[in-house]
Amino acid sequence: MLSAQSLAAIDREVAKYPADQKRSAVMGALRIALVERREAGKTPEERCLNTEVIEFVANYLQIPPVAAYEVATFYNMYDMKPVGQYKITVCTNLPCALSGGVNAAEYISKKLGIAIGETSADGKYTLLEGECMGACGDAPVLLVNNHKMCSFMTPEAIDKKLAELN
C-alpha cells in the first residue's frame, strides 16, 4: 500500500520512540502516507487519506484502526477530503487578517475562481482557510501542500507563486 521509501521513513519515525510506544509514530506515519498519496495521486480523490491507507498505517504500527482514524480527523492538516494537486491554506486569523490575510485569501479565490473550501475543476488547486501558523509577523502567510510556507504574500507575490506552481 505504501512505497518502500515511505515505509523506511515511517521506520525512522518509529525509532524515535521507546520500543513499546510505536503508537507515537502515528502522526509522522500518517503525514508520510499523505505525502506519498499526494505525490502519486492523479485525482483529488487519490491525493487524500482514505480508510484503506489509515488502516494500513494502523496495522503497521499495531494500533486499532479507529485510533489512527481519530488522529487523522483530529489534526486538520491531514487531508481527509479530496484535494487538489496544490493545496493552498491561507491564514486568516486575526493577526494575519490585520496584515492582509483575508485580502490574500480573497485575491486567490478570485484569481482561481474557487471559493474557500473548494477545489478547482481541473483538480489542480484547493483553497482553504487556515488557523494560526505561528508566523503572524510574516503575514500574509500561506502554506502550499502543508509543508511549504510562503511569507508576505502580497498580490504580486501571490501572482508569482501561482505562476510558479503553474
Binding site: 524515535k16 520512540y17 510506544q21 509522522g28
Partner: peptide
C-alpha cells in the same frame, strides 16, 4: 533528543494535550 511534529491542532500547545499527541493520540 528527538523532534515530533504536530499537524494542525492549537490545543496541543496545552502541555498535557501535547503529551497525549506525542503518545500518538488526539490532543
Amino acid at each position: 533528543l528527538f523532534a515530533h511534529h504536530g499537524y494542525g491542532a492549537y490545543i496541543c500547545g496545552e502541555e498535557t494535550a501535547l503529551l497525549e499527541s506525542l503518545e500518538g493520540k488526539k490532543g
